[in-house]
Design a binder for these strands. Sequence first.
DNA 1: CCTATGTATTGACAGTCGTGATTTCAATAG
DNA 2: CTATTGAAATCACGACTGTCAATACATAGG
Lengths: 117, 117
Amino acid sequence: MSVDLALQPKTKRPAGEPCCEPVVYPDVEREKAERMATVAKALGDPIRLQLVDVLRKHAGQVCVCELVPLFDLSQPTVSHHLKVLREAGLVGSERRGLWAYYYVVPGALAEIAVWLG
Amino acid sequence: MSVDLALQPKTKRPAGEPCCEPVVYPDVEREKAERMATVAKALGDPIRLQLVDVLRKHAGQVCVCELVPLFDLSQPTVSHHLKVLREAGLVGSERRGLWAYYYVVPGALAEIAVWLG
DNA sequence: CCTATGTATTGACAGTCGTGATTTCAATAG
DNA sequence: CTATTGAAATCACGACTGTCAATACATAGG
């Protein structure tokens, strides 16, 4: 796995001088990076990623009691993962009687999807 | 923030019976979910996400000594983040003399990008 | 009211993560 | 060779994560 490198030949620096010219770095990226990292972090668990996958395919149609048996995890653990997704802004929930229905927040994945693509 | 829900009316289950019909779940998703979660997890830190961003824009052109001053972090910490990215398969490195040049592995982001998009 | 059911929260625990100080390795210049 | 520089590894430590058991909360039925 090789990539074409356009390498400037470099020599040992003369002791005391900075190693290299600092790459210009747009500070405006920071907030965006933090937002996207929050989303990525929430997706950084296979369970949560599968939860999002299921919710995207069955938005508002599956209650938590249907999600639990999919993962061989306890109900509190699934509830915890849903909470993590909710706090990251990826999902929302509606309650209908005893049951809670989750859905992926529209557009929540858009920014990072664009950046990745 | 509301989503159109197609809810089947549900009634309290008759005690002893399973809550709901289990949603069919393709087991083939599991490995894919784990691969994508690994990538997402590696991107789940603002520093690493920005590292990837810089490397995508300057592949093979920036040495580690140029990356360090961008983040107000110690050199070992930046090196650590690069190692995390390397172990997740997101980046590779080439060494030219004293300097190490990193690049984003082509295609490493493709799978999750497609899934997100 | 009381009871049962679905969901959320709390407490506890082992494991992992992000960071820096220090050390070690690698490679160049003299 | 020695000295110096860039990069990686090691060690340590506080903070956070994923999990479950137990508990609490919310709602519906009787």
